[in-house]
């Protein structure tokens, strides 16, 4: 299947030609497929945010190309504008963008800009609210009266309501409590499965991406350092630590156990799998 988004030799330089010139990403190559749930990790300043703003045409590449279903998203102005609704981008702390009087109106802002109106608009809003667990009774309330977690959900619904083929989220769970985190991740997965969308999620929590994603992309110094399944990536835990990243705690525990001579696999990154391995090890078989 052809990739839904393809990035070719992408380089971006901020404030080119001034004393503040700064190369944020250099020669990045990537492709995303429909139905993939991808985790994007990397320490602060590794170029994650710059990269994701290229995928929906908010930033223009200094050099290189971004292709959506094989077409250059910068080929004409109208096309770039239409890409913004095909590739939904949820920024960090999206609750700071809420502005309407009611949640319904705020969620409707995106689809309305797409030219949708009437019953279809109402259906879109309710469907999006359903995905993020916002009940119909909250839709008529002011978004400023909601709790922090609810605001975040309304803001994410505002992007989901455009029903994008690709959904990109920049740290969707930052600053939420454990329960809020788990349920938002569940909502994201539900959307991805219902729409067969490609989802790219930036995160700093290794546990989170390990449990949720089928593929991980690791960025370092403005380039892609690793790209593979979670087990492929977490087997290289030493390299991750050198980049200033961590690995899931359970992976560290297993690495230390292996150093003490226990015969355990190196690619353990979820607690569930770890329990299975330990049980198997106790009974003397391989997991």
């Amino acid at each position: 299947m052809p990739p839904i988004i393809e990035v070719r030799d992408l380089t971006h330089i901020y404030s080119a030609g001034t004393p503040f010139e700064y190369t944020a990403i250099e020669n990045v190559n990537l492709s995303l497929q429909s139905g993939e749930l991808i985790g994007l990790i990397g320490h602060t300043g590794s170029g994650k945010s710059t990269l994701i703003q290229h995928l929906n045409g908010l930033l223009k590449p200094t050099s290189g190309k971004v292709l959506f279903r094989g077409e250059d998203i910068w080929k004409e102005k109208k096309f770039t504008q239409s890409i913004r609704s095909r590739v939904g981008l949820v920024f960090q702390y999206p609750e700071y963008q809420l502005f309407e009087e009611t949640c319904w109106k705020d969620i409707a802002f995106g689809p309305r800009n797409q030219g949708i109106s009437g019953d279809e608009l109402d259906a879109r809003v309710r469907r999006a609210a359903g995905f993020v667990g916002i009940g119909p009774e909250l839709l008529e309330k002011s978004p400023f009266d909601l709790s922090g977690g609810q605001k975040r959900r309304v803001a994410i619904a505002g992007v989901i309501a455009m029903e994008p083929d690709v959904l990109i989220l920049d740290e969707p769970t930052a600053g939420l409590d454990a329960a809020g985190r788990d349920s938002i991740l569940e909502n994201i997965r539900a959307y991805q499965q219902a729409q067969n969308a490609a989802v790219l999620m930036v995160s700093h929590s290794m546990e989170e991406v390990a449990a949720l994603c089928s593929r991980l992309i690791v960025m370092n110094h403005g380039g892609v350092a690793m790209d593979g399944t979670p087990s492929e990536v977490f087997t290289r835990s030493e390299e991750l630590v050198q980049m200033g990243l961590s690995v899931p705690q359970v992976t560290t525990v297993f690495r230390l156990l292996r150093q003490r001579g226990l015969k355990l696999p190196a690619d353990v990154y979820t607690v569930r799998y770890a329990v299975r391995c330990l049980a198997a090890w106790k009974e003397g078989r391989s997991c």
Binding site: Q53, N56, L58, Q81, R84, S85, G88, L89, F91, P94, Q97, F109, G110, N113, Q114, G158, V159, M162
Partner: peptide, 9 residues
């Protein structure tokens, strides 16, 4: 940027 991402013109 965020509102542009939601199609604001």
């Amino acid at each position: 940027s965020a509102q542009k991402a939601r199609g604001a013109d």
